[in-house]
Amino acid sequence: MKSIYQAKRYKIKDIQRQSNNNIMLRIKTKINPSPGQFVEVSIPGIGESPISTASYNKKILDLNVQVVGNVTEALAKMRIGQKIHLRGPYGTSYPLEQLKGENLILVAGGCGVAPLRAVIEYLKERRLDYKEIHLFFGFRSPKDILFKEEMKEWKSLYHLNLSVDKAPEENPFNCPVGFVTQILEEADISADNSSILLCGPPVMMDKSITILENKGFSTDKMWISLERHMKCSTGKCGHCMVNGKYLCIDGPVFRYDKVKGIDE
């Protein structure tokens, strides 16, 4: 019997620097995750790290890595042509098939935009199956904006609302300064036949959900992605367990009414 913890080795095709502490690794692999799922990336000798996937249906798997710990620091030092280990994909995904014919509202903050990039790539191929698509993406400052090139394309295809918390220097995108939640509050969106896909820091998601509930959106139309340090990713080790739910196999994407009010 094969070990479920065994990972396969893949070559890094390209590395794109996204911001000061974000890089995007483009890896040649046959792993084809659904939007919202994640993979365990590892460098033998340093360790494993769960990273959400940022692309859909290509021979190249994109992983946006924010440098915060040991493994991500080592990943940031990798060069093109070097190999990393991957296992997965794991977890649940955004139920995009089920949401056909609806308006979609994507709300994300910081590197939470990465998993939603996979959603956007999925939608691009099936644009006619969905109605209006609104994107609300917030970043800390213009320097921290991820996927800068693609933002231009997304602006022409969807209703893109980009915001930055502060713009001390220049603001090349001319985006409004303020939290993404403020932009969301002022936005003209209707709850009629709409679903929300959320990903980002817990505070941002909590605020966004309150605003959306006030606007008349029901909680069973919201899909959120939760985050913990998944170590085994196979529903065992217990590190990602919240109130009996393993985020690695029962999540990370949940319908909000199923996890509303869960406390540690």
Binding site: P44, G45, G47, K231, C232, C237, G238, H239
Partner: peptide, 16 residues
Amino acid sequence: FCFDMFDNINPSTRNG
């Protein structure tokens, strides 16, 4: 049964 996973390696030989 909760467990932690980690790598233990000899940096010079890259074995572990």
